[in-house]
Write a protein that binds this DNA or RNA. Sequence first.
DNA 1: TACTTCGATTGACGGAAGTCAAAGTAAAGT
DNA 2: ACTTTACTTTGACTTCCGTCAATCGAAGTA
Lengths: 239, 239
Amino acid sequence: MTPSGEARRIHGDDLQIMARVPLFAGLTPEALADIAGQSQVSRVPRGATLFRQGDAAKVLHVLLEGQVALMAGVEGGGEQTMLEILDSGESFIAAALLTGKPYLMSAMALAPCRLMEIPRDALLTRLRANPDLALAMLASLSRHFRLLIQEVKDLKLKSASQRLALYLMGLTQRRRGSVTLRLPHNKGLIAARVGVRPETLSRAFAHLKGQGVGVDGQMVTIADLARLGRYCHEGREIV
Amino acid sequence: MTPSGEARRIHGDDLQIMARVPLFAGLTPEALADIAGQSQVSRVPRGATLFRQGDAAKVLHVLLEGQVALMAGVEGGGEQTMLEILDSGESFIAAALLTGKPYLMSAMALAPCRLMEIPRDALLTRLRANPDLALAMLASLSRHFRLLIQEVKDLKLKSASQRLALYLMGLTQRRRGSVTLRLPHNKGLIAARVGVRPETLSRAFAHLKGQGVGVDGQMVTIADLARLGRYCHEGREIV
DNA sequence: TACTTCGATTGACGGAAGTCAAAGTAAAGT
DNA sequence: ACTTTACTTTGACTTCCGTCAATCGAAGTA
């Protein structure tokens, strides 16, 4: 803890968080402080929109605290899908920033959030100067890329119930035995995440009863994780 | 043309191609030659598999000549989707290479190909040493990332006919008036690309007749590109 | 307690796309 | 030319999921 006033102390905590963000992994404390010095920290309430699909990307957001959903939809209509949920300590995806093109998604705060905003120019300058940062960003982008590839594959090749099962398995580290876990969102959001309507989610949960999945409100019990994992990777025919 | 033997002349041509690959955009001729010097050039016949989903990524492929499909499927079964088609002068996606994890897709040569293979270590070394290369790779990855985002959105929000229309519009630069174009693949491959079965593709083509799209073998005529574009962006209800 | 509201579930129905099977067509080999 | 093969289309049927509507329950409010 630095011998300083309130504003700096908060900044010190933020550096702690930054250091754990994969995007900044391996950076020296000086490099972290340098970037932080160029950035602003802002707070937004639950439900706020950080940016909208079509906006120009001017800053890279880093989620210090809170939770954000990345949504996309057809321009006119209300039809929307959720593409990703970001949690504390994750950076937003820099693709729009790096291509200089408008966002393809909108970002909505699912909880009160504290965000670091790194200006585009500052980031690009430091990417050029600091190979470690560039490599870390390549790694981060690659990781998200692979998540997205997996998402496309799942959308094309798996049923709604299988995608739900995959989502549930993603909520725990364990791969065997049984678990009880709490759903991190209401079911409407989970439905959007899985890529189905809320009604279909209900039916998918009912369907998964046959695979040892029980639901009671927010609580979900999985009797046999290994079995559910097998179910996820079955071809479509064997339901 | 350099005053040299056969092997070197081919290499000189390859440098020309490399210079046009987006991934290497802006690199100095020296940097290009440096990378080329570390790499091998290989040829594969049509139908060959370059790597399989699950393989470890040891080299970055750059497609000097030919065409490659990136496919993914469920492990056991034969169900497959195509995620992307790469053409001459495009680099493969470095995500697997950079994360050090196995490929999520398989690569199949759709035509006889000539490929440059850049070893992983050589690439990583140069990424660290050359910020321009790192930035170019970030840009390339970002571009592919955004294509993929768009793909997820289309899969979730558009009908099969709309996705086919989008695919057709992607085959031409023009956005208005009428065009006649030749399909670059057989319809089975196009079906996989659009994300439907061949039977459904036939029906989607039949459906698009109502939007001024005519098909005769490999030749497709679009009477009014602007109209087809509007059709692509309609909400689902207005079909 | 009663009332409203929102989220979640259930049922009935329809439509889009997959599946299976067959026929038609084009391309390639002999 | 004829056969063989692969590709494409068409038809009948099924399945999954979305839509619409009604119901139910929980949380908050008057």
